[in-house]
């Protein structure tokens, strides 16, 4: 057969024939491989699940559920034996790896004890960060059987109980964070998984003590330093018992922080709640009352007498590790709230 001329017809014919044959055969191969591919994927996931939870007889992937958290979502695979929950495999993540996101499968027993951890995905340095993989080093083994309540999921150098991988602090730290996230969300799943911050109304009731009125009904505006702030007075009978100040601060690490600060009639702090913030999960968000005791050190202090500043800034407040700027903004907001409080007293 001689070479065909490059006429329009011949060209269209050739292209058409070839693409038709190609797509037909691809469709065929796709059908052929569809099931094996699915099966391979499921097998891989099941393998990971099997590795981190005790023996089960259900199909955890069928019962999986997802919980959205800041920065991504966690997937839960409940493992059951004879209908009873024996553990949950949690697909968790961290974005703080040395080379980006790390995905782990963390297996927790129903009480929260870590049963096993497998790495699903990572781009860490071979020979260093990849030692987090269970077949490359014993790093992950130290978590097995530990309950995060007594086993601080932080590196020893950061004050925790985890022995990091030599020369791989960042990956180790990220790994701990991912495990902590899985644990936190798991333990909280019955309460409120997403850590919703209190609403303004709730916050007022939390930060004020010893009141009989409805402070929300009596809100009014106070001008301090040229800005208007909303305050909620607390009363018992006719006597004034305190004031809650809705205090926005515009200088967190990432964005503004909004606090509700409660004072008694003397100006002593009776409570603080975080209303809004955009700080870093795991660091700046430790200002939330649900996440750390940071707020507790303010209770009972009087900003008029006590130096509400971080210790490194010459004050008396202990910093949040890793979130200096956030903590500093928090202190500033508390002091400003007190300014509003004293303005309100003078009105």
């Amino acid at each position: 057969m001689a070479k065909r001329e490059s006429t329009f017809f011949n060209m269209v014919l050739a292209l058409l024939t070839i693409t038709l044959v190609a797509s037909a055969s691809l469709g065929f191969i796709y059908e052929l491989t569809k099931e094996p591919i699915e099966a391979a994927r499921a097998a891989r996931k099941n393998e990971a699940i099997r590795a981190v939870v005790p023996d089960f007889d259900n199909n955890p992937t069928e019962e999986q559920y997802t919980i959205e958290v800041a920065g991504g979502e966690l997937v839960f695979y409940p493992a059951k034996k004879e209908g009873e929950l024996v553990g949950t495999a949690i697909e968790t993540f961290t974005h703080r790896g040395f080379s980006g996101t790390i995905k782990l499968m963390v297996g927790l027993l129903p009480d929260g004890t870590i049963h096993g951890i497998e790495v699903l995905e990572h781009k860490e340095t071979p020979g260093l960060g990849d030692k987090m993989e269970s077949d490359k080093s014993d790093f992950s083994a130290q978590f097995e059987g530990e309950h995060p309540e007594d086993f601080q999921l932080r590196l020893r150098q950061d004050g925790g109980d985890v022995d990091g991988i030599t020369a791989t602090t960042i990956s180790s730290r990220a790994y701990c964070e991912a495990v902590q996230r899985a644990y936190d969300v798991y333990m909280d799943k019955d309460a409120d998984v997403s850590y919703e911050l209190p609403s303004r109304e709730e916050a007022v009731e939390i930060v004020l003590v010893n009141f009989a009125n409805n402070p929300l009904r009596e809100e009014y505006q106070v001008t301090a330093g040229g800005n208007q702030y909303t305050v909620f007075p607390g009363r018992r009978g006719r006597s004034y018992t305190g004031l809650a100040v809705d205090m926005p601060s515009d200088e967190g690490y990432i964005g503004p922080i909004r606090l509700m600060v409660g004072f008694d009639s003397e100006g002593v702090i009776t409570g603080i709640e975080v209303l809004e913030h955009e700080e870093t999960p795991g660091y700046g968000d430790l200002i939330e009352n649900a996440r750390s005791d940071f707020y507790k050190q303010f209770i009972g202090l009087n900003p008029g007498e006590d130096n509400i500043r971080l210790k490194e800034d010459g004050g008396i407040i202990d910093n949040i590790s890793g979130a200096t700027i956030t903590a500093r903004a928090y202190c500033d907001a508390v002091r400003s709230a007190w300014e509003v409080f004293s303005e309100a007293q003078n009105m």
Partner: peptide, 12 residues
């Protein structure tokens, strides 16, 4: 480097 990455302030 480690300390600052973990958020520990310079002074400490």
């Amino acid at each position: 480097k480690e300390g600052l990455a973990a958020g520990v302030p310079m002074s400490r």
